[in-house]
């Protein structure tokens, strides 16, 4: 399927990579796309490397395997760069988005010769500043991958996220605005574009 975008998420258990992949699926679905969002399951352990996946396309994909040649990779935790082959199979026409305060050029050495585009976003700092918790970086990461892939128009994405966050946090309305701010900054602060 030529129009299909495949995304692989790398994170550690408890960092919300799976949740982010499901939110991306929600947002793309709301734009009329066919989507798949699924994690790689095993015994779930806090801190252990995990992967999650998205397929986004204009027709239904019948594939039910993991993604081995993704168009894009998202790394929610930069310590994984030395632990997991995050660029494995990653298409050079695509790119990798890493949660890091560093500039893309500073991380290239750790990407095993990957020649495609490298992007960084300091999602942990955004989470720390907006949400008061550096480990809640997944919303800013989600915004960054939307920006980089262009799979969803930004305005539509913001609208969809607002509805989704309002729904999720209906009992905690005070966290809605900070989350929206984290998303806005995620869209704006990607380095390497």
């Amino acid at each position: 399927m030529s129009n299909m975008v495949e995304i692989r998420w790398h994170g550690r258990g408890g960092q919300g990579a799976k949740t982010a992949s499901l939110l991306l699926a929600d947002a793309a679905f709301a734009q009329g796309k066919y989507v798949q969002g699924f994690p790689e399951y095993g015994p779930e352990r806090m801190g252990a490397p995990i992967a999650a996946y998205n397929r986004i396309s204009d027709e239904r994909s019948s594939l039910h395997s993991n993604i081995y040649e993704p168009d894009f990779v998202v790394v929610v935790d930069a310590t994984l760069l030395s632990a997991v082959a995050v660029t494995g199979g990653l298409k050079e026409t695509g790119g990798i988005v890493i949660n890091s305060e560093k500039a893309p050029a500073e991380l290239v050495d750790q990407l095993e010769g990957y020649k495609g585009k490298v992007y960084t976003i300091d999602a942990s700092s955004i989470a720390g500043e907006e949400l008061g918790n550096r480990s809640l970086s997944n919303t800013a990461m989600l915004a960054a991958i939307v920006k980089v892939t262009g799979v969803i128009p930004e305005a539509a994405f913001m609208k969809e996220m607002e509805a989704s966050i309002k729904d999720t946090f209906s009992s905690k309305p005070h966290v809605i605005a900070p989350n929206m701010k984290a998303i806005e900054r995620g869209l704006k602060e990607v380095k390497g574009l």
Partner: peptide
Amino acid sequence: QDGFITSHAVEN
């Protein structure tokens, strides 16, 4: 249906 592969995958 297949555990995790379809049970835990969101699809249209």
